[in-house]
Amino acid sequence: MIGESWVTTTFEKLEEWGRNNSFWPLPFGTACCAIEFMSVVSSHYDMARFGYEVVRFSPRQSDVMIVAGTITDKMAPVMKKIYDQMPDPKWVVSMGACACSGGFYRAYHVMQGIDELIPVDVYVPGCPPSPEGLMYGILQLKEKIERDTKKRRKREKAKRADDDGSVAAA
């Protein structure tokens, strides 16, 4: 069976390593946080040092969506559509108070956090977060993905062992 051979698992590890070290972010920037996002990609804080510099504006080519700025009710269907267009696996970083929870706009036209519509992996507080804050958030996301991968692998291994055991018992 090719499913569990040494070649495929090693290849899977390589793929995961590569993915973790080269996110292609989609900046869904609407407001003030987008200006700070520009700082993160420009020379002072250069995100390219982590391998995350391939900023894609096309959802089809990206795997991390960085929602930077207030999402209003008018923008919500657009954001949902763009999220749906991203290929799996995909992650969402919510940057800044407005995207995380609506911030101090408890108002008639502002979404109270993007997690009303799409799942969020990392929340970065701040209004707007400092560039270091965002980079910290993205590094946290990387760790989270690594952790999740390890957990998943462990679970699969346990399941396999379980299956083997039941087969042997039968």
Binding site: T30, A31, G69, T70, T72, K74, M75, V78, C98, F104, Y105, R106, A107, Y108, H109, V110
Partner: peptide, 22 residues
């Protein structure tokens, strides 16, 4: 209108000093 954050309504519900961050 994709970034209408209701500044003017928010200003009516906060004190004069609190409007400054908005």
């Amino acid at each position: 209108g994709y970034l209408h954050r209701c500044f003017e309504k928010m200003a009516e519900t906060h004190t004069w000093q609190q409007v400054i961050p908005y």
